[in-house]
Design a protein around this nucleic acid. Sequence first.
DNA 1: CTGTTAGCGCGTTCAA
DNA 2: TTGAACGCGCTAACAG
Lengths: 334, 334
Amino acid sequence: MRVTIKEVAIEAGVSLSTVSRVLHNNSKITEETKDRVNKAIKKLGYHPNFIASSLAGKPTKTIGIVIPNDSDELFKNTFFINAMRGISIYAQKKGYFLMYSFSKNDEEEVRFIEKYIRSGWVSGIVLLNAYENDKCINYLKDNDFPFVIIGSPSESKDINWVDNNNYDAMAEVVELLISKGKKNIAFIGGSKNLRVTKDRFAGYLSVLEKNKITPQSGLHFFRNSFSESEGYNCTMEIIYSGIEFDSIVTTDDLYSYGALKALEESGRKNIMVTGFNNTPKSSYINPSLTTVEINADELGENAARLLIEHLENKNLKPSGVLINSNLIERETTT
Amino acid sequence: MRVTIKEVAIEAGVSLSTVSRVLHNNSKITEETKDRVNKAIKKLGYHPNFIASSLAGKPTKTIGIVIPNDSDELFKNTFFINAMRGISIYAQKKGYFLMYSFSKNDEEEVRFIEKYIRSGWVSGIVLLNAYENDKCINYLKDNDFPFVIIGSPSESKDINWVDNNNYDAMAEVVELLISKGKKNIAFIGGSKNLRVTKDRFAGYLSVLEKNKITPQSGLHFFRNSFSESEGYNCTMEIIYSGIEFDSIVTTDDLYSYGALKALEESGRKNIMVTGFNNTPKSSYINPSLTTVEINADELGENAARLLIEHLENKNLKPSGVLINSNLIERETTT
DNA sequence: CTGTTAGCGCGTTCAA
DNA sequence: TTGAACGCGCTAACAG
């Protein structure tokens, strides 16, 4: 049987509550009795039982992480494991436990959240959503349960979120191209409904404007899925259209791989290409791809920070955090 | 406030214990009262409180996963995230919760295990060890706490483990080379103290023997660290030694990358090379690398199965499970 | 400053 | 077959 607070009390010759007080250094206690209690704790090797502590009203100090089981995303990059590690770095420092669950789809995702909440285990939740998932957010808001989302919520007010600074990141990419003398820059992105696409496109436009370059809608592509073939098709479209272009930025490395393929097949030279996400492949291909590194670690760490801060200070207002990413220059922009 | 068992009891007009019995369909209960209770549960939207349930003596149905924060390993492949997903697939099916923690080093690893056990949260632990970590194993055994290890424990008896079938995997690789007419096959592996190295080397030897090929110790290399440069150095050594060789097998893709580099620099042609672990780079390089895919998902799933089976049946004997891997043939063996 | 006491929500005796 | 009562280990009033 494990050592309980009671045995410590007896050993130290004090009452249960005194021991509890020493444990939480709540009210003032004589140094002397505090010493006696601490000695007893050491001697008996006492460790508090979190379960009992939680039952008695203390927060569980446990955070649940909900991961979408989108295999594509999962295999292609190390985003999730890095985000999870980021979360763990902050949470463990603060003495929090972490729970996780993979969910096959939206529905299951909500079910797990429900289970986390209902069971009483967790006191806060981190949503690790690649895209939007309003079902989860709504459920959490309806239940007034503390949570933070990594990614771009469609409605960012009244919720805690952490996201990349997509606007600035794309602006930096475009500025690089312009500094290299490029002017006719094509843009290939995901669905315009995604906030991440909107933000990156806005960053793109802002730099064009700053440099007095008129955006040409014929060079703008928004696709509903992320794939090499979409990138290939878009690039071919540009080429066939005859619109002049000297470079291509995309919101995902996958598009860029397709674009590079199209450029090679059609014999187009000197077209600079950039990607996004720094997928493993980007550094191995030839030419290697200039892309943007998402700081998943930092995203996770800040998500944990935000959540825990709100857990420990209930009347904090929800807030959002933008994390900067790193532009990685490689051969496709030389 | 959440709905408690008490409110259900009142609603159904029965006692607390009756509700509890219905929940666990323990002893016999009249269909009629069972119905009444179930209706009350539905009506009130009752969900059991796991915390209270655990305090009262039920198992927590929670598994702790300890992940080494070896950044090298973490970044280079998707092993961990896949193993974690594998674990989740089985555990979630069985209604278990999962906790995880990253640890910087052995010492911290033991500390987390200690915390998991002492806090009372978890009822079993999965060790996700890249290599051996006897400290953790010893601690767990000393405390007689249920656990399973993914990887190769140095002492496999009396503990639950899940590992790749390294012997067979390497045998398959060597057989492939022999089927391609290769005879003088070099072996580059990690430390001979590692069981994984021993097993793979044994698989290698077995096939040579089967094919009446005399192993040449001049072609066998065991290095203490996994890196491209080690692979490069070993290969150069072979070349300088003048010993005839027509192919190289390694126990890690990293060695193979170094080997390929050495072969190219020294202008050696027609040397087949194979790796291990199917790192992302292996499919992108030119020529692409023939390697062995570790089924991390399956490792995780079986680890969870083993642990949960032992959790639910205390007098089960510890056992080990070997998971088969897949040989991926690519250009370096054509 | 410290002890006493009453729960937290549930499982499990022991009687009935 | 069901109910009453106690306890799991701890926290938080309320006294003193």
